[in-house]
């Protein structure tokens, strides 16, 4: 669906060359929800703007649905953009237009007749759940409602691809979840490919099939969301994963844990899929002469199944701890002994 080859974008700011996107090559499948995560300044905003030609690459190519988007110009680019629509962090609605007029705007651009515009707008309003607010102006809507208008507007010309530019970053957690549910619904019902950029791991975890981690313009890690969660390789990925597991920055910090548990071992267990439901700790205590207490825990639902981490303090004889660890590894739960260094 989307094919990106050796994409590179340089900017010159005050005579200094900045590489915003550096040699990115990746393919996104039809119907996939693909997430790109990175901290601000990682180049993800530039990356997503290269996909619909709002920015032109310094080198490399972007193909969407067989069309070469990079280096396209004029009328052909404008036509092609109608099939690759975008939603924005700050919604970017026209305040001078009502909800239905905002949704009708891309249809006006595409030259759809007035009667057909009316029908399509009514369907879209229903799809995003804004019945009764047709005549309201954006200033009369909540953030979540504004983004629903943004989504309806983006879907108006029946696009193949929906690009999300930090689409939920300006929303509160509850509204974020509602908007994410709507995106999943649209993806499943209409089969639209969705590409999202975000700095929130929560967004990736909740709706994405695959994720790419971006740092300094490069994709440093990419794969299925569950795989990347379970086995993060790069330090930046680990930091993002810890946003969710909370091992690093929520509640007890590791140092405090070590102070509180001077003897025994602290073990971080990572569960993926069904294993979260198995009574692993019970078996551990029954089979080995150790005591085990849960220090910290966290479980997340991802699109491919649950994913959780648990920090357990195991105490007992050295040999028993060793055997307990081997048991944990044998049942395919990732066990990592946390050390104080």
């Amino acid at each position: 669906m989307i094919s990106i080859k050796e994409l590179r974008k340089e900017f010159t700011v005050e005579d200094k060359k900045i590489v915003a996107v550096d040699d990115v090559t990746l393919d996104i499948k039809r119907g996939e929800i693909f997430g790109v995560i990175g901290y601000s300044g990682a180049g993800k905003s530039t990356f997503i703007r290269l996909l619909n030609g709002l920015e032109q690459p310094t080198s490399g190519e972007v193909f969407i649905n067989g069309k070469r988007f990079s280096h396209m110009k004029g009328e052909s680019l404008r036509q092609a953009r109608q099939k690759v629509s975008m939603i924005f962090q700050h919604f970017n609605l026209l305040w001078s237009r009502t909800v239905e007029e905002n949704i009708a705007f891309p249809l006006e651009i595409a030259g759809v007749s007035k009667e057909e515009r009316y029908d399509r707008v009514q369907n879209l309003i229903e799809l995003v759940g804004l019945q009764g607010r047709e005549k309201a102006y954006p200033s009369q809507l909540s953030g979540g409602q504004k983004q629903r208008v943004g989504i309806a507007r983006a879907l108006a010309n029946e696009p193949d691809v929906l690009l999300g530019d930090e689409a939920t970053s300006a929303l509160d957690p509850e509204t974020t979840d509602a908007i994410l549910d709507l995106l999943v619904d649209i993806n499943e019902r209409l089969g639209i490919t969705i590409v999202l950029i975000t700095h929130e791991m929560h967004v990736i975890q909740k709706i994405c099939h695959r994720v790419a981690v971006m740092e300094a313009g490069r994709i440093v890690e990419m794969g299925k969301v569950l795989d990347v969660f379970q086995n993060p390789q790069q330090s930046v990925t680990k930091r993002f994963v810890s946003q969710l597991t909370g091992v690093k920055d929520t509640l007890p910090t590791l140092e405090m844990l070590f102070d509180n548990y001077p003897s025994g071992s602290l073990i971080q267990l990572t569960f993926v899929g069904k294993k979260t439901e198995e009574p692993i700790l019970t078996e551990l205590i029954r089979n080995f002469q150790v005591s085990a207490s849960v220090v910290h825990g966290h479980i997340n639902e991802t699109k491919d199944g649950p994913y959780g981490t648990l920090i357990v303090h195991i105490d007992g004889a050295e040999s028993q701890i060793h055997e307990a660890l081997q048991f944990l590894q044998s049942i395919d739960v990732k066990a990592e002994v946390l050390s104080n260094e």
């Binding site: 619909n52 709002l54 680019l77 404008r78 036509q79 092609a80 953009r81 109608q82 629509s85 975008m86 924005f88 700050h90 970017n92 609605l93 026209l94 705007f105 891309p106 006006e108 651009i109 595409a110 507007r153 010309n157």
Partner: peptide, 20 residues
């Protein structure tokens, strides 16, 4: 952002002038 949104929908400059 509003101008960018109009561009992303494939609006011509004349459309951007008159409608945005």
């Amino acid at each position: 952002g509003v101008i960018e949104a109009a561009k992303s929908m494939g609006a011509k400059t004349s459309t951007i002038i008159w409608k945005v």
